[in-house]
Structures are given as C-alpha cells and as structure tokens.
Nucleic acid binder design. Structure first.
Lengths: 232, 232
DNA sequence: CAAATAGTGTCTTTTAGACAGTATCGC
DNA sequence: GCGATACTGTCTAAAAGACACTATTTG
C-alpha cells in the first residue's frame, strides 16, 4: 500500500499536527463523598494520570495503558468525556487531551493511591493543567449514567442492601434522598439475592441488579431534584 | 521561550502524532423531520463538512472555519460530540476526528445545500467514513439540549406559536406529542409576544422564550417517552 | 351559520412524598 | 421486654394524560 498524497504531493505528516494525550479521572466513593485518583509528580504537582496516544491505538486503549502504568489498575471501563484543546493548555506545546472517566470501588485501588475529595463537583486541591475541569466532567458523566441504571459501575459489590445503595446515590448526587421514595423507584430494577445482611436491627435483604434494566426517566428527577419551578 | 525537551532530549515533535480533524453535523428540521447538511466530493461521495485543525486553533474554531469554507455558513454555535479515533477510520493514515454538532433554521442554508433526511437517527443515504455515526451522536445531543430548554438553537424565530413549537419537538423526537400536556409543560418557559398569528381558524398567540429558563426534568419524560415499565 | 383551529376545564389514574405503622433481629 | 433497624400501608397533594368543551377567527 502506497502512502496517500494530496494534490500538492504532500502526505499527512507534512502538515502540522498536535500531540494527543489522554487523561483519566477515576472516581470512587469513600466516606460518603466522591473522590478522584491523582498522581504526584515533581513537575506538575497533583495531576490526573495520563499518557500520549500511540499510533494504531484508540484513546480508550491509551487510557487503559495509562492507568495500568501509572496507578497499577487493570480491567476498567472508560467513558469519553470530551476533548480539551485550548492551544495554551500545556506549556510544552500543542497538546490536546481526550479526557476519560471511570469509577471503581475503593478496595480496588492500590493502598498507596492518592484520593482527593470532590466538593461542589470540583476537587478540593488544585490540579495541574485543566484537570480540575475534567473531574467536573467526570462527575457529570457519572451522574448521568447512574440516573439511567442501578450502579452501572458496580461501586457496590454484586449484592447490596437498599440502604447501601441509597448512601451511594447520596454521595454521588451530594444530596439526601428520601428513603421510601428511593426504595420504590429502584426496587423494580433489583432482584432479591435470597440472603440477609445482619446488622444492629432487623436484617436487611440483599439485592442484585436486574440485568439490562434501565431506570425510568422519572428517577432522574429524584436524584437531581427537579431544578426549581413550581412549588408555589 | 525555549522549546521543551524531555529527559531524553526529545521535543514533542519527535514522537508520532496523529492528524486531527473536525467534522460537523449541521442539523435542521424540514418537512417535519430532521435533516443533516452534507457536502459532495468526487472521492468521498457524501460526507460531513470538515477540516484539519490548525496550530493555535481550538477544534471549535476549526469547525467554524470548516462551515464557512465548505458551506458558506457563519455565526453557528457548535457542540462537541466526541472523538472518533479508530486507527483504521481514514484510509489516508492516522487521523482522529472531533465530531461537532449544530442546528440551524432551514432559511439560513445556502439554496444549493444538500440536506439528507435522518430516519431512525441515521441518515437515509450512506456517508463516508464514520460520519453516519456522528450524525447519530448529533441527534442525541440535540435531543438532550432540547429537553433542557425551549428551542435553544432557535430553529424557530424569535416568536412562534405553541403549535409550531410542538411540531418542531415532534420532528426532533420523531414521535407525536400530546397537544395539551405539551402546552402545559412548556408554557411557563414562554412569555407572550403580545401578538397573534392569523390562520385558518382562531388566531394563535405568539410567544417568545423566557430568558435563562430551564425546563423541569419531567419534561424529558414527555419528549422521550418514559421507556417501557409499568402500565400493566 | 359552518368550518377550522386555539386554548382550557375537568375527570381519572398515577405517583411523589410524608408519616406512621408493622416486622424482625440482638440483647 | 427494649432498642434498633428494615420494610410497608396509607394518606394527601400534585401531576399526566385523555377528553370534551369553550373561544375566536374566516368564509
């Protein structure tokens, strides 16, 4: 196969091209709030793990490679968040970055991981470059996906109680959710696991996710709160 | 300012980089259905307008430039849809594309524009590369934005009737919407323009968009239909 | 007047949300 | 029994959706 040339005889490489990076915001829930994984470097301080995209590779595979190399994490599902392309965003030159998001249960992180709390959709410590904004995008994406299905990223294990599920959603949406309405909205996305979890009082029933079950769109109103209007 | 070098003395340009393009799906509503603007070329057949991103330029500005050059369209607001990065997607070599979406009223297109109907979220004619999938993304993005506000892209003019607005939404969501519920959902996102539009019967009141007014999240259920469940 | 289209009153069914009740455990 | 937590029945207010009625134009 011979290399492509345009009308003036130039190939693609004869034109200026940016470097293309991926940066990954890996979220988790701990202590009732969202947190994000960061890595430390002498030059950048705190930053999201990232890498340059290699030839023949998709950005998603580059994200997998970055997480394996920089945080020792394998088998994660990434979601594309958007392209960050301000020409000034990287002091090294013309670098655009494709931000990706993912979420993992706390126990899958290496013990020496650095997790930064997210408050008001922004990490509480400064991150390098435009990485704080990527975190905001990752949170928005997580909320959208959690409004459509029951814990799609399996931040809880296979089996969980309704209380555990509600506390997870309260952390993700950063607001209290009414106990009984929450149960009624989600219960027909669940099946009993036939087991009980003993605790301080009456044991709670353990549930599993109903496979391929989407939540009704009205559930989004519950999680987000039906922004303003009405209630005169 | 001296050029950045990494530990092995190499600059960014010493590593392989992809060409980065933008492709733009400009949507409109005509004859009660969504359509998308395409351009014809001898080599690619039908394709979305696009261009390579220039140094010092954002992808959004490249999108503006592409539309001005290839379709004679100015003053459009673009929304980023996603990155298409399959290494095989372009026969010329390693080209990733940042897809953008926009929407314009029919009367803003040049008279010789080619508009392709969109049925089942896909253009009815084959497009080059992965451009058909970009159109699907653009439709999804348009629907999301139209569920959050009243005709944010101003496909209708400044003033319009509730009937006109409903027909627009029926075209966008490709489903009939109940006349009275639609009105009650949207009417408090509108203000009367103090004018009437005469027609075959009783004249219809003209409305304007209430500035900065978000629709309640429950409106999304109306537009999309509350996917399945219930109603036993 | 009839025809046509705009807009609303109202009824039914459903549901969110609140509250309080009942159920089931450990002690 | 008592405390604690899980779950559920029920009431109320609100809203969706359907239907039909009223309103205002043209011819």
């Amino acid at each position: 196969m011979t290399k492509w040339r345009d009308a003036s005889g130039k190939s693609l490489e004869d034109y200026p091209r940016p470097s293309v990076a991926v940066d990954v915001a890996v979220l988790t829930v701990a202590d009732g709030e969202l947190k994000v994984l960061v890595v430390k470097s002498p030059r950048d301080g705190l930053a999201l793990p990232g890498t340059f995209v290699h030839p023949g590779e998709t950005t998603q595979r580059a994200a997998v490679r970055a997480l394996a190399a920089k945080a020792g994490l394998l088998g994660i599902e990434f979601h594309q968040l958007g392209v960050f392309d301000d020409p000034q965003r990287d002091y090294r030159g013309w670098v655009i970055s494709v931000a990706h998001g993912a979420a993992l249960p706390l126990d899958r992180f290496p013990v020496d991981s650095t997790l930064i709390s997210i408050v008001n959709d922004v990490p509480v410590e400064d991150l390098a470059y435009d990485h704080a904004q990527m975190v905001t995008f990752a949170v928005a994406d997580l909320r959208e996906r959690y409004a459509r299905a029951v814990d799609p990223d399996r931040l809880l294990g296979e089996a969980f109680t309704v209380l555990g599920l509600r506390q997870l959603y309260e952390a993700i949406y950063a607001r209290p959710l009414p106990k009984d309405t929450f149960r009624r909205q989600l219960v027909d996305g669940l099946v009993s696991a036939g087991q009980l979890e003993v605790g301080g009082g009456r044991p709670a029933e353990l549930f599993r996710r109903l496979p391929n079950c989407l939540l009704p769109r009205s559930a989004a109103s519950l999680f987000y709160g039906d922004y303003g209007r009405r209630r005169g």
